[in-house]
């Protein structure tokens, strides 16, 4: 993902949607079949369950310079793996706090529960997220990265 931008005028938000294959992905798929229009700013990543989403995935994704992350899981009580969606919800809440602590608005991350048959809700949620991001502006990390700051970052892991 190339986050390089120089000013807000040529900025088009980039939103990553981490979605569960059993519900939100199906809803997004159905939105396509139904020819429902929704903004192209969202990039969908299909997961076996939102329970797979870890705090570190969300932080790292945000570090790539995306403007927002949308996590789409099953409705409460509907998880294929019993409670993956509820766990994801807890992690999303926690990650919001971690992001806020580091200086990134927690509103850039949101979890929605969207049923497999609820294509209109998927469209509504994407619209909601795009509107929210447009209000917030670009991810502040992008500006730093555009200035070449990321080149100085090296990591050693043991």
């Amino acid at each position: 993902m190339n986050p390089a931008i120089t000013n807000n005028n040529d900025w088009q938000p980039k939103i990553v949607a981490l979605v569960c294959t059993y519900c939100t992905y199906t809803a997004a798929d159905m939105a396509g079949s139904l020819r429902l229009q929704y903004p192209p700013e969202v990039r969908i990543v299909k997961l076996p369950c939102t329970g797979k989403v870890d705090t570190i995935h969300l932080l790292k994704t945000m570090q790539t310079g995306v403007d927002a992350i949308l996590v789409g899981g099953c409705e409460a009580g509907d998880c294929h793996f019993r409670e993956g969606n509820l766990r994801a919800r807890e992690r999303v809440e926690y990650t919001k706090a971690l992001l806020a602590e580091a200086g990134i608005a927690g509103e850039r991350l949101e979890m929605y529960h969207i049923g497999a048959s609820d294509a209109p809700q998927w469209v509504a949620r994407v619209n909601e997220m795009v509107a929210r991001v447009k209000k917030l502006g670009p991810n502040p990390l992008r500006l730093h990265q555009a200035a070449g700051g990321i080149e100085n970052q090296r990591r050693a892991v043991a």
């Binding site: 870890d54 945000m62 990134i104 730093h144 050693a156 892991v157």
Partner: peptide, 26 residues
């Protein structure tokens, strides 16, 4: 896991402050 989370948070915070840290994890 918590090492990764803290490293990530510090990276974000230091980049936003304009003074990126050189981070390592072990």
């Amino acid at each position: 896991r918590e090492v990764k989370l803290l490293a990530s948070q510090l990276e974000i915070a230091s980049q936003l402050a304009g003074q990126p840290l050189f981070m390592g994890e072990a």
